[in-house]
Amino acid sequence: MTVTTEAPVKETPDAGGVPSFQVTMRLRRFNPESDTEPRWEDHTLTMHGTDRVLDALHKIKWEIDGSLTFRRSCAHGICGSDAMRINGRNRLACKTLLKDLPLDKPISVEPIKGLAVMKDLVVDMEPFYAAYKSIMPFLITTGNDPSRERRQSPEERERFDDTTKCILCAACTTSCPVYWSDGQYFGPQAIVGAHRFIFDSRDEGAEERLEILNDREGVWRCRTTFNCTDACPRGIEVTKAIQEVKQALLFRRV
């Protein structure tokens, strides 16, 4: 069975022997025009073993309640639009298979925490992007005329390979308890973004970025709870990256 965004959960009667099951989706809904408080809403659907949480959301939006609002673009774990709190854990809806979740209980789907909810599962991502911007996520070099390539050995590239995988889905930042309680903290993602440049041999802005992360609300607020590493849909070792930034700060300054 192919699941595409165009023709999603419209299965043929014999869906290639894919097992189907009943699943209850418990959605955290909030409509700013009519609700004062968010509310839970249950939908029981018949889904298949190949379906993801995103497919269930699509089925609800397209066949039951068109007002359900959520973000998604590529639907294949690349764009990072559909991070949400699924059964209490930050996951990408497009990478979480329904059959991997406990189906005897309702599957709860909430917006990611720590950012203001705009409607249903859509949150205001601006503070998250602002933190990313403040670490200067662009190549900083001296001179203004690159007359040849900036060469790099495979070993030098390997140094920051892990953090180049980030898709800015905000799953890590919004799983961080420090970020929940303190809106000033940069959050894991911004540190991952900085790590990607700090350890890049071609970049010359490491000192500036480290200075920014040495801030009161910078890396030192990290409590190494590993929520971010657990949440990352790209498998980035976020906590390790944060510790490496701490280490770089420590041995440059002490």
Partner: peptide
């Protein structure tokens, strides 16, 4: 690596950054 002066990027910097400029110390470190 010496601290370099970096030209402002095209996009405006985050409104949160000015307050980060004050009191650059290693206290938290």
């Amino acid at each position: 690596m010496a601290a370099t002066t970096i030209a402002a990027p095209r996009s405006p910097r985050s409104p949160r950054s000015p307050r980060r400029m004050r009191g650059r110390t290693n206290t938290e470190l």
